[in-house]
Simulated assay, not measured.
Amino acid sequence: METLRYLAQDGHTVICSIHHSRGSVYAKFDDVVLLTGGSLIYAGPANDEVLAYFSKFEFVI
């Protein structure tokens, strides 16, 4: 993940598919696209905005 982070910081586009990542891995992402059943449910910054977004729908307590 560190290598991918360095590539992104150097201006390269990096696309990853992760499943159930650790918090330390997730923290390295700038933006995320979340899908379920092939449908988009979130696209945006990979920070507290994700929690705020899903808390509107009562998915996060």
Rank of each mutant, 00 (worst) to 15 (best):
A43E: 08
Q9V: 02
L51H: 11
H12Q: 13
D10P: 04
A43V: 02
I15E: 07
S39A: 07
A43P: 01
Q9D: 01
A46P: 00
G44S: 15
F54H: 08
T3F: 13
G38E: 10
A46V: 00
H19D: 07
Y53C: 01
H12T: 07
D10C: 10
C16T: 00
L35W: 14
C16P: 02
H20W: 05
S24F: 05
G38K: 10
G23Q: 08
Q9A: 04
F54K: 07
D48W: 13
Y6G: 03
V50N: 05
I18L: 14
G44D: 13
V50A: 08
K56T: 09
D48L: 12
H20I: 02
K28P: 02
V14S: 07
G11N: 04
L7E: 12
G11Y: 04
A27L: 12
V25K: 14
V14I: 14
H20T: 01
F29L: 05
R22W: 08
T13E: 08
H12E: 11
R22V: 05
S21E: 07
P45W: 00
H19N: 09
F54T: 06
A8V: 00
H12W: 12
L51R: 11
V60G: 10
G37W: 10
G44C: 14
M1A: 13
A46E: 01
Y53T: 00
H12F: 14
T3L: 14
A43I: 01
V25A: 14
L51M: 10
I41D: 05
E58N: 12
L51Q: 09
A8Q: 02
Q9M: 03
T3N: 11
K56I: 02
A8P: 00
G23W: 05
A8T: 00
F54V: 08
S55A: 15
R5V: 07
R22L: 09
G38Q: 10
A46I: 00
L4C: 12
S17I: 06
D30F: 06
G11V: 03
C16M: 06
V14P: 02
S21I: 04
F29I: 01
T13Q: 06
E58S: 10
G11S: 05
Y53W: 04
L40C: 04
V32I: 11
H12C: 12
I61G: 14
R5I: 06
D48I: 11
S55L: 10
T36L: 11
T36W: 11
R22K: 13
S55P: 05
Y6A: 04
Y26N: 10
L34R: 03
